[in-house]
Amino acid sequence: MVEPIIQLDHISKKYDQQYAVNELTLSIEKGEIFGLLGPNGAGKSTSILMMLGLSEPTSGRVQVCGMDSTTNPLAVKKRVGYLPDDLGFYEQMTGYENLLFTASLNAIPRAIAEERARDLLTKVGLKESGDKKAGKYSRGMRQRLGLADVLMKDPEVIILDEPTLGIDPEGVRELLALIKRLNQKEGITVLLSSHQLHQVQQICDRVGIFVKGKLLAEGNVEGLAKQLFFEDSFVVYAKANPVDNNLNEQLQDLAGVNRVVETDEHVEIYAETDISSAVARTVIEAGADLFYIRKKNYGLDEIYHRYFEGGDEGGKASSA
């Protein structure tokens, strides 16, 4: 068993009687990309601050790279790169100079720092803009410079707080691809927080859903979907003509089908297993025309929504 690189053990953070983070237990393995998902104000940033030792947990223990972040933050910060959600640069310095300044704070010798800075600027696609003042950078460029900045210290783990915030779709795609590449080629463990689900879904090995200071679920995307929609894991949409009672019954009788709903557009078949081929066969054999058949995949959106629904209902129930 591999020793987890980030280990949170029942950490809580309380701000005036209110828990920002409540009994969070989480472990992240070396080399994975973990996505911390949650709406604004869920406590994602607070958890990240505690991992870096920038904020002290009210209770619980944080271990990063085998060291306690609360008591030994400097050693942790040597190995962990952190990209804050709203990062800024010294605007009167160029991007390259900003990187060199970070290097000097990490006591990296000048010669190595210069080489690494150029290298990283090329890697994040800022080779041409490296000598421009950071104040002139666009949002996407700043974010990429931020990534280069984080990598200057040659970290084992990078923690990215909302890295895709405010970047255009193409920029997001590039940034995520870059993160994925770093993870695969250099074996850097990545923890990223986001509230933008589709984006995270593309690159995360595992995600944790974090609402109101609590980790509601944790696992890979398919696993989470199964966990939540265990009865109706698969939904098949089929448009056929004509749909009579006979066909309806036949569909209902298929193995694993829970229910069949007929809408104006098409027939929705909810099932426990993937029955799309069986549906197709049944429709054809019944002599109807099949126009299309489509499987619905549960993305993070549905998962997320389901959890929030649950959370709201829970809130209503407790207040009632």
Binding site: L52, L54, L74, A75, K77, K78, V80, G81, Y82, P84, D86, L87, G88, F89, Y90, E91, T102, L105, N106, G146, D149, V150, K153
Partner: peptide, 14 residues
């Protein structure tokens, strides 16, 4: 306000 403080704090300096 410029957001550089949190970046500074993420570096291994007291």
């Amino acid at each position: 306000n410029k957001g550089t403080l949190s970046r500074l704090m993420a570096q291994p300096i007291p």
